[in-house]
């Protein structure tokens, strides 16, 4: 594909035809972060993102993507932050036998384990080895666990417990068997899809009522089990805000209309989904 084929740059002069003010500011912030790195300066994602609170979570996501590329380019033995792919699975964590890895994200990885006392499968999220000494990421990781602990809802993944202080940072969650909402939807009728999404919306409303904004709601973070029950997961970017925070007000207003007609409820759900998922949905 050539530059001319690049959809974002068709008819592009200098700034691009559709670049909004926010996009330009986001682009400048990402470039600023890169330039600090280029000069050999120390970069702290948390601190840098705090300088641009209105660009969250997009700024953080782009910076983490840049760091992911950086990790791929670093030679593991000489990487200052280690190699995520060479993190060996622990054999066990107090009371849990590790069976394997379910998935891996920006700063954490999710392991499948057996709770030896209750004899059930659980999912354990751990902080990647290269971030163990990063105080801000450790704090954010623990914040994720605390955020999850605040909310108990049948359509939101449940947290069971926090790891021991003398082990790597981890927390234990319910193990979900299922598939992403997009894959699951392929086999569903329209009515089933609407019912499923209504459950997701109500789960999001529940979060908002508890002052939690997910901020990373996307198909990959909604699993659907064999019983067609959706579960919202991955609170790595979630934000807990105080009452009266402006960021909750719009969603609350929308949710306040949910008891109206089925048609308007569908419209409300779509509007809400568009709001909470920003541009990354579809």
């Amino acid at each position: 594909m050539t530059k001319a084929d690049s959809p974002d740059f068709q008819q592009n002069e200098d700034k691009g035809p559709s670049s909004s003010e926010r996009e330009r500011r986001l682009a400048n912030a990402v470039a600023g972060y890169l330039d600090v790195q280029c000069q050999g300066g120390e970069t702290d994602i948390e601190g840098y993102c705090r300088l641009h609170p209105d660009l969250e979570p997009d700024l953080r996501i782009e910076i983490e993507t840049l760091d992911q590329i950086e990790h791929l380019l670093e030679t593991p033995a000489f990487s200052s932050q280690g190699d995520p792919d060479e993190d060996e699975l622990p054999q066990s964590l107090s009371g849990y036998k590790i069976l394997g890895e379910i998935g891996s994200g920006g700063m954490g990885r999710v392991l499948l384990a057996t709770d030896l006392r209750l004899d059930r499968k659980v999912a354990i999220k751990t902080l990647k080895r290269q971030y163990l000494n990063n105080a801000s990421l450790r704090a954010r990781f623990m914040q994720e666990a605390r955020t999850m602990a605040r909310i108990s809802h049948p359509n939101i993944v449940r947290i069971y417990s926090l790891g021991q202080p003398d082990e790597i940072p981890y927390f234990v969650m319910e193990f979900l068997e299922g598939t992403t909402v997009v894959e699951a939807a392929q086999a569903l009728t329209l009515h089933q899809k609407v019912e499923l999404m209504q459950k997701v919306v109500l789960a999001v409303e529940f979060m908002h009522q508890h002052q939690v904004i997910h901020r990373d709601l996307k198909p990959g973070n909604i699993l659907v089990g064999p019983d067609l029950e959706p579960k919202v997961l991955d609170f790595g970017l979630a934000l807990h805000v105080g009452k009266g925070d402006k960021r909750l007000s719009h969603a609350d207003e929308i949710m306040g209309t949910l008891t109206t007609s089925p048609l308007s409820r569908l419209g409300v759900m779509l509007r809400l989904m568009r709001e909470v998922t920003s541009s990354r949905w579809g």
Partner: peptide, 21 residues
């Protein structure tokens, strides 16, 4: 800066399309 931002955004989408969780 805009080009880089859009490139990183697209790269991220590629990463997400590979592993959605």
């Amino acid at each position: 800066s805009l080009l880089l931002h859009r490139a990183v955004k697209r790269f991220r989408e590629l990463l997400n399309s590979k592993s959605s969780q």
